[in-house]
């Protein structure tokens, strides 16, 4: 009756269960900035011994806790759920807590810097306000007309599935801060705001689609997107960001959603 788990003991599992920690020497090259100390940003190298199966966030903690308490970054959940720690790691936007050191070639120095396009306030901390403002501007809440039903609104499983992908967003800004259009013009709403507009536009319960589409039809709206796919590559939640933007564009033309 019971599945014999031992037969299923695979190589992957053996590797995972290999308890001996194999610490290796890794260099982290971190972009430092603290206007209390200097107006100039600079690179600083930190060397440490760490198991490559650990997260980049673990390495940053190890540096902060054991070498330099002034190193500053945001973090909370440590497993890719809260969206605090998007940063540029080896030139790509990622969550530090979702990136294992072994997966980013620890033989060479690993570069870590703040995400681009938002003002750096200290080390890896950026000003998130413009990002959240763009989000708030797309009216990211369910808009309905008429009387509320006493029970729940009905929605078919298919209708629910229609916008499932964009409900996963954790507002980490990895997408928006990887977008060349956003780098050049901070007025552009950016992919994350459009993703969150998509989440409501394609929700069968929502009746604010027209209003939201008008906002996105603005000169700083969806039409600025150049379909470079950086955002989709950057999204730690695996959201098809570019596809969502395309769907919003199509809805603008056809007014069907």
């Amino acid at each position: 009756m019971s599945t014999p788990t031992l037969d299923k003991h695979s190589a992957a599992l053996d590797a995972a269960e290999n308890t001996a920690s194999h610490a290796i020497k890794v260099t982290f090259r971190i972009r430092r900035f603290n206007p209390e100390v200097s107006e100039e940003a600079s690179w600083q190298d930190f060397e440490l011994d760490i198991d490559p199966k650990e997260r980049v966030l673990d390495a940053l903690h190890k540096i902060k806790w054991e070498q330099d308490g002034t190193l500053t970054f945001r973090r909370s959940c440590a497993h890719g759920i809260c969206g605090s720690d998007a940063m540029r790691i080896n030139g790509k936007n990622r969550l530090a807590c979702k990136t294992l050191i072994k997966d980013i070639n620890p033989q060479k120095p690993i570069t870590v810097e703040a995400i681009k396009g938002l003002t750096v306030l200290k080390d890896l901390v950026v000003d998130m306000e413009p990002f959240f403002q763009a989000y708030r501007d797309v009216m990211p809440f369910l808009i309905t007309k008429g009387n509320e039903p006493t029970r729940e609104r009905l929605q078919t499983a298919e209708d629910r599935e229609r916008f499932d992908d964009t409900t996963k967003c954790i507002l980490c800004a990895a997408c928006t801060s990887s977008c060349p259009v956003f780098w050049n013009d901070g007025q552009y709403f950016g992919p994350a705001a459009i993703v969150n507009a998509h989440r409501f536009i394609f929700d069968s319960r929502d009746e604010g689609g027209e209003q939201r589409l008008e906002i996105l039809n603005d000169k700083d709206g969806v039409w600025r997107c150049r379909t470079t796919f950086n955002c989709t590559d950057a999204c730690p939640r695996g959201i098809e960001v570019t596809k969502a933007i395309q769907e919003v564009k199509r809805a603008l033309i056809t007014r069907r959603f």
Binding site: F141, L142, L154, A157, F163
Partner: peptide
Amino acid sequence: SVLDLEKMGLPFNRTPNGTI
């Protein structure tokens, strides 16, 4: 409390007849 969240927009998984 659950119904309030649904009305606020929470995308619960659905049964075949469309309820939560």
